[in-house]
Design a protein around this nucleic acid. Structure first.
Length: 601
RNA sequence: GGCGCUGUAGCUCAAUUGGUUAGAGUACCGGACUGUCGAUCCGGUGGUUGCGGGUUCGAGUCCCGUCAGCGUCGCCA
C-alpha cells in the first residue's frame, strides 16, 4: 500500500506485466539525457529507478517543463507504461524492460545544484562532505542498502526474541552517574542546582532490576552513550540489543544467542549457520591469537618459543626469557620472497610505535629448509632445528618474533597477524566466522592505582570453582563472562550476574569499594538484591557493529544515519555548540575564563 | 594526549619534486541533437592551493603553528 494521493506506483516496481497501465510516479531526478526531440529522465525513489521519456507525443506543457529540469529536482509524472522498443531494454535495471511515456509532468520542488550527486557511484566525496550533506549522501544506493539492512537486522532480532517470550522494556535515558567504566555524558539539572544526570553507558543496572522485578526475559534496543575517543567501529552514541534472562546459567544465554545468530544468518544473509557456535576460553585466545576477539577466518597462530629462546646465545632472546618475559612468533607462510628488508622494517616501526615493542626479530626459511636471516647466526644448528620444528617452518616462510612482556607480545603479534592477514589476503572477506570467547578474568590489575579493576563490570559472577579462592588469588579467578566475536570484532558481551549480596560485597571489597561508597553508588541495586533476586544473566549485542559486519562495511558510520566525526561532532547540525547564557544560568553553570563564550542574542 | 595519512575549481583528482599564465574529468551556464541508459558534440564561467606565520629572487610544493576529516595507540566493553 504505497499509494498516496500523489502517486500510485513506485520507481522500483514496474515490469513488463504493467505495460498498458497509466501510472503516476513521484521521485527525484536521478539522471537526464536530452536529445532535443526526445528526452530521457531517470526517476528515483526509495524503491528503485524508472526511465521516463518525454517525446514529441508528450504534451507541450510537459515538454516545456522538461527543458528546465535538473538533477535532484522532485517531480511527479503521469504516463503510460510501455515496453521499450526492440533492443532498447536495459538488463542492468530492474525496471529496464519498460519505460513511462510522459502524459503530464509537474515539478513538486526544484533543488539547488547539489554539492555531489547520489547517482555518481565511482567517485565518493570526502567524508566531511558526506556528513555535512547527509541528506544527499543518504540518497545513495549503498547508504539506503545499509540502513535497510540495519532495519531488517533489528526487526529479525525483535521477532526472534518475541517468539522466545521476551518483552521489550524501555529504561531511562536520564540516569545516575556511575564512575565505573567509561566517561559519562552529563546532563545538568535545572531543578537541582549543581547536580547532574548521566546518559546511560548501557542499561545494565536497570535490566538487572527488571529481573528482580520478575520480568524474566527482557530485551531492549537501547541507545548507549560513552564519552571516549572514537574508532572506525566506535561512536559516542551507539545501539545495543540489550538482553537479560532469569533462572539461567552461561549455557542458556549462549544458546539463546546461538539461536539468534542462526536466525540472523539465515534471514539476512541466507547462510545456514552451524550451532552451537564454537567456544574458546579467554586464556586460550590470548595464547593462540594474543587477543580476546581474534579473527578466526584465518590461522597464523602465535607460537610460543620462550623455552627455546632461553637456550640460545642471542642476547635479546636470552634476556627476555630469563627475565620471565616471552618470545613468541607468527609464521607468515611462503611470503618471505615478498618481504624486502624495507618492508620488514616498516613492520618493525609499526610494532614499536603502536604497541611499544622494543623490536622485531625475524628469520626466513631458505630453499634448503634452513632458517636464515641476521639473527640466525646466534643459534646452534640443533637449536635452529628445534625452532624449525616448533614453527612448522618450510621454505619461503617468514617468521616474525616479538620478545617482550606478555602484554606487549600479545598486542604486537595480534597487530601483525591482523595486518598481514589483510595484506596477504589470507581470508575471503565474504567469509563469516562466529564464535564465543568465554571465561574472562574477573579482574585485571591496575598498576597506577595498585589495585584490581573489574574486567567487565562489578556485577559479574565468578565461576563456581573460583568462588573459594576469590579473595586470595583474585588474578586467577575467571568469570561467567562471554563475548560474541564475529570476524575479529567484538559483536557483543555479557555475563551471569552476582545475585547474592554477600558475593557482591566481596567483589566490591576486592575492587576497593568500601561499603559506604558502594552504598552511595549502587545502594538501590544492593537493596534490590536483598528482595528476592533470581539468578540471572544476559548480554548486549552491538547493533551498529552487527550491521556493519553483516553489511560487509569497514566502518560503523556507514550504517548509522547521522553519525559523528572522530571528534564527536555532527557536521550537519553543528553539534555540539555554544549555548545562550540564559540557558547556562538556569542550569547553574558558569564557564571558565577563556573557554568558549555563550552565543549572544 | 601521541603517531600517521589527507586538505588545490561546486565535486573527484593532477601539477615533471622550489620556477614564471595552477590543469583534467565531472558538475554548472549557453548552443546542437528523436533511443539514450556514465548519452554525444561545440563553446563558456569557475581558484585567497584549509587558515596564519616563516625560509627564498621565487612556495600548491620546504619549515613552524593552527583548523578540519580519516586511520591508529592510549582510552573505551
Amino acid at each position: 500500500m504505497l499509494n498516496t494521493k500523489l502517486r500510485n506506483q513506485t520507481c522500483g516496481h514496474l515490469r513488463a506485466e504493467h505495460v498498458g497501465q497509466t501510472v503516476t510516479l513521484c521521485g527525484w531526478v536521478h539522471a537526464l539525457r536530452n536529445f532535443g526531440g526526445a528526452k530521457f529522465m531517470v526517476l528515483r525513489d526509495r524503491y528503485g529507478i524508472t526511465q521516463v521519456t518525454i517525446g514529441p507525443e508528450s504534451p507541450e506543457a510537459a515538454r516545456k517543463i522538461a527543458e528546465d529540469l535538473r538533477d535532484e529536482w522532485v517531480v511527479t509524472v503521469t504516463g503510460k507504461v510501455i515496453a521499450r522498443p526492440d533492443g532498447q531494454s536495459n538488463p542492468d535495471m530492474a525496471t529496464g524492460e519498460i519505460e513511462v511515456i510522459t502524459e503530464s509532468l509537474e515539478v513538486l520542488n526544484p533543488s539547488e545544484t547539489p554539492p555531489f550527486t547520489p547517482s555518481q557511484v565511482d567517485e565518493l566525496p570526502n567524508e566531511d562532505m558526506r556528513l555535512k550533506y547527509r541528506y544527499i549522501d543518504l540518497r545513495r544506493q549503498p547508504m539506503q542498502d545499509s540502513l535497510i539492512l540495519r532495519h531488517r537486522i533489528i526487526k529479525a532480532m525483535r521477532d526472534y526474541f518475541d517468539d522466545q517470550q521476551f518483552i521489550e522494556v524501555e529504561t531511562p535515558i536520564l540516569g545516575r552517574s556511575t564512575p565505573e567504566g567509561a566517561r559519562d555524558y552529563l546532563v545538568p539539572s535545572r531543578v537541582h542546582a549543581g547536580e547532574f544526570y548521566a546518559l546511560p553507558q548501557s542499561p545494565q543496572i536497570y535490566k538487572q532490576i527488571m529481573m528482580v522485578a520478575g520480568y524474566d526475559r527482557y530485551i531492549q534496543v537501547a541507545r548507549c552513550f560513552r564519552d571516549e575517543d572514537l574508532r572506525a567501529d566506535r561512536q559516542p552514541e551507539f545501539t545495543q540489543l540489550d538482553m537479560e534472562m532469569s533462572f539461567v546459567e552461561t549455557d542458556d544465554v549462549l544458546g539463546m544467542i546461538d539461536g539468534l545468530m542462526k536466525h540472523l544468518a539465515k534471514t539476512i544473509l541466507g547462510i545456514d549457520l552451524q550451532i552451537p557456535l564454537p567456544r574458546m576460553t579467554y586464556d586460550e585466545a590470548m595464547q593462540r591469537y594474543g587477543h580476546d576477539a581474534p579473527d578466526l577466518r584465518f590461522g597464523m597462530e602465535l607460537i610460543d618459543c620462550t623455552d627455546l629462546a632461553g637456550k640460545c646465545e642471542f642476547r635479546v632472546f636470552r634476556a627476555v626469557a630469563d627475565g620471565g618475559n616471552f618470545v613468541r612468533a607468527i609464521n607468515a607462510k611462503g611470503v618471505a620472497g615478498d618481504f624486502s628488508r624495507k618492508r620488514i622494517s616498516q613492520l618493525e616501526t609499526y610494532v614499536k610505535e603502536d604497541f611499544g615493542a622494543k623490536g622485531l626479530a625475524w628469520m626466513r626459511v631458505e630453499e634448503d629448509g634452513a632458517l636464515g636471516g641476521p639473527i640466525a647466526k646466534n643459534f646452534s644448528a640443533e637449536l635452529l632445528e628445534e625452532f624449525r620444528v616448533r614453527l612448522d617452518a618450510t621454505p619461503g616462510d617468514l617468521v616474525l618474533f616479538i620478545a617482550d612482556s606478555w602484554e606487549v607480545s600479545c598486542k604486537a603479534l595480534n597487530g601483525l597477524r591482523k595486518r598481514l592477514g589483510a595484506e596477504l589476503e589470507l581470508y575471503d572477506p565474504q567469509d563469516m566466522n562466529f564464535s564465543w570467547i568465554v571465561e574472562f578474568p574477573m579482574f585485571d590489575y591496575d598498576e597506577e592505582q595498585d589495585g584490581w579493576n573489574a574486567m567487565h563490570h562489578p556485577f559479574t559472577a565468578p565461576r563456581d570453582q573460583d568462588l573459594a579462592g576469590l579473595k586470595d588469588t583474585p588474578g586467577e579467578a575467571r568469570a561467567k563472562a562471554y563475548d560474541l566475536v564475529i570476524n575479529g570484532y567484538e559483536a557483543g558481551g555479557g555475563t551471569i550476574r552476582i545475585h547474592d549480596n554477600e558475593v557482591q560485597q566481596m567483589v566490591f571489597g576486592l575492587l576497593g569499594l568500601d561499603e559506604a561508597t558502594a552504598r552511595d553508588r549502587f545502594g538501590f541495586l544492593l537493596d534490590a538484591l536483598q528482595f528476592g533476586a533470581p539468578p540471572h544473566g544476559g548480554i548486549a549485542l552491538g547493533v551498529d557493529r552487527v550491521a556493519m559486519i553483516f553489511g560487509g562495511l569497514d566502518n560503523i558510520r556507514d550504517c548509522i544515519a547521522f553519525p559523528k566525526t572522530q571528534r564527536a561532532m555532527d557536521l550537519m547540525t553543528g553539534a555540539p555548540s555554544p549555548v545562550d547564557g540564559v540557558q547556562l544560568e538556569e542550569l547553574h553553570i558558569g564557564l571558565k575564563e577563556g573557554e568558549k563564550e555563550p552565543e549572544s542574542e
